[in-house]
Computed example of a mutant assay.
Amino acid sequence: MRAAHDVSALRQMLAGLEAERLPGASSAFSLGATGPDSVLADTLARGALHEIYAAEGADMPAASGFALALALRSAQAEGEAPPYPRPIVWVRQDFLDSEAGRLDAHGLRDLGLDPSRLILVRARDPEQALRAAGDAVRCAALGAVLLEPWGEPKALDLTATRRLALRAGASGVTLFLLRMAAKPSASVAVTRWLVRPILSNPLPADAPGAPAFAVALLRHRGGLQGHDWNLEWDHESCSFRDIAPLSRPVVSVPAGKPARQDAGAQEAAGDVRPFRRAG
């Protein structure tokens, strides 16, 4: 047991040393909320690797939403207002469709991403997902890359994360590693986040509020870890804001399914069509 503990500690130390040797990103992005930005100002690196973990299985949708929100923030050039023109690549292992559900075009638009700007890559196994993400992150024309494998694949080791981070540093494209059904392990990620959903503040007439997250910064290369924030996401400005205390419990989404719109209403609201397979 002692030897296993020593090996684990050595891996964590090596991960930190490797992170310090990675090429520095040319710029940084913020979350847009006063709480985290007062701590993390100019320290969230573009062109780097960031990790987002779901706290529990039921928290996977929240972790996905938070990861996409970070990707949108990192894709924003200085002085640029949404919507952002550069596409985002999401590399997703097929198995996640049955475990967490498929990505929904309406949901993406509600988070502030035009579905036409998303390139969805479905991989049959972790090895294929790593290869696809490694190729994508080399493309400097992208806004960001999300990599979503399932579980704790052996292929996703310290060497693999270092390779991905080096490619991100060379291209300037930020890579977000979304971890589901996995425990934190040695990597060269600049930041590591743990995400849970929380109740949202209601809109007028008790309409469902904005997506709300409880986030914990588990790791930061600059030593700023150990902070927790409650945040909500504004899809119009593509920015986080500190969540106000709730006066009473509310649910963040309707309890039942939304009413189906007729064709005229869909056309008036702007129809969002499902993804279509390319190639």
Rank of each mutant, 00 (worst) to 15 (best):
M1S: 15
A3Y: 15
H5Q: 11
D6Y: 11
V7S: 15
A9C: 07
L14W: 13
L14E: 10
E18W: 14
P23A: 11
L31F: 11
G35C: 05
G35A: 14
A41D: 04
D42H: 10
T43D: 01
T43Q: 07
L44M: 15
R46Y: 01
A48Y: 03
Y53G: 02
A54H: 05
A55D: 13
E56Q: 11
M60H: 11
P61A: 02
A67P: 05
L68Q: 06
R73Y: 01
Q76N: 04
P83S: 14
P83Y: 10
R86S: 14
I88T: 07
W90K: 03
V91D: 14
S98N: 10
L103C: 11
A105H: 09
A105Q: 08
L108P: 14
L111W: 14
L113D: 09
P115L: 06
V121L: 13
V121Q: 07
R122Q: 10
A132D: 12
A133W: 12
A133M: 10
A133Y: 04
A136M: 10
R138L: 14
A140F: 04
A144Y: 00
E148V: 05
P149N: 13
W150I: 03
E152S: 12
K154D: 15
A155H: 08
R162T: 09
A165Q: 07
A165C: 09
L166G: 07
R167V: 08
V173H: 02
L175E: 06
L175K: 07
A186F: 07
S187M: 02
A189R: 00
A189E: 00
V190R: 08
W193I: 01
W193P: 00
I198V: 15
L199E: 15
N201K: 00
N201T: 00
A205D: 13
A207W: 02
G209S: 01
A214D: 15
A216E: 11
L217P: 05
L218T: 03
R219V: 01
H220V: 00
Q225T: 03
H227T: 03
N230T: 13
L231I: 04
D234K: 04
D234H: 13
H235C: 10
C238M: 09
C238R: 15
F240L: 08
F240C: 02
F240I: 07
L246A: 09
S247E: 15
R248G: 09
P249T: 04
V251N: 07
P254W: 06
P254C: 08
G256T: 11
K257C: 12
P258N: 05
Q261I: 06
Q261W: 09
A263S: 08
A268L: 14
D271R: 14
V272G: 06
V272R: 04
F275M: 09
R277F: 08
A278D: 15
